[in-house]
Amino acid sequence: MALSLSAMRSAPFSAKLGMSLILLYAVLAIFAPLIAPYAEQEVVGPTYQPWVAPYYLGTDALGRDVLSRLIYGARNTVGIALMATGLAFLIGSTLGLVAATMGGWVDTALSRLVDVLMAIPSLIFALLILTITGTSVVALILVIAVLDSTRVFRLSRAVAQGILTLDYIEVARMRGEGLGWIVRREILPNAAAPLIAEFGLRFCFVFLFIAALSFLGLGLQPPTADWGSMVRESARLISFANFSSWQTATFGLAPLLPAAAIAILTVSVNLVVDWVLHLSSGLKD
């Protein structure tokens, strides 16, 4: 894939914007303790302060600094979404590539299993499983990774089937290479490009999914700072939004801040993915 520096320089404005925003989020998430003015769960002042220094985005119902919690939220929410997406790719692409390469009953059994999992809406299935396991971070990551791996499985299996018809695979097979070699050394390098673009899209889905679960009170649990739960905690305030004065206006906007943080990140990732897909498809306007 042509993700070289020159390609980046010639990227359209939307892709550059997306990349800078993602970079900003990454910096915030990695250096959260250095950037945030207060600690994640520290009660720093009176409750429901307006947006004035030293609480630039006010304080929440317990008197915690909203800006600091937003910054730590980048770390928690995005971190868990990345872990779940990574695990989903590990499971999904391994099984998908192996299923395509081996064929036969392995392929049939795995494909039918994926069909069944995909027949149930993921949110509903996740709610069912989380009722059983209870809400913990590990359960959350595992459930989402398994549910999302079904889509990765479908894609990687389809990509691998296209590659398997090529001559060099035939040559490798005749050389007597094993399954592991064929999957890792012959198929994977050629299947990487579509899988990387898919990673961005899946990340968005997983990220929104976790935010939705947290918003429903079934994802990350308080007092961990997380954008979905922050929306949930401050949701009622929106009915008090009133633009007559700075204090009342900022007060009512509290639930929109974490929600906007979620929206901006997903938009940025989509902008970059759109550009990468455009590049790798070789389309020219």
Binding site: C204, I238, S239, G252, L256, A259, I262, T266, V267
Partner: peptide
């Protein structure tokens, strides 16, 4: 719109059509 979480859309609509 695809990138927006449902609740973000919902709260913006509430802010506009209900509160304002």
């Amino acid at each position: 719109v695809i990138s927006f979480p449902e609740f973000f859309v919902a709260y913006i609509l509430i802010l506009l059509f209900s509160v304002q």
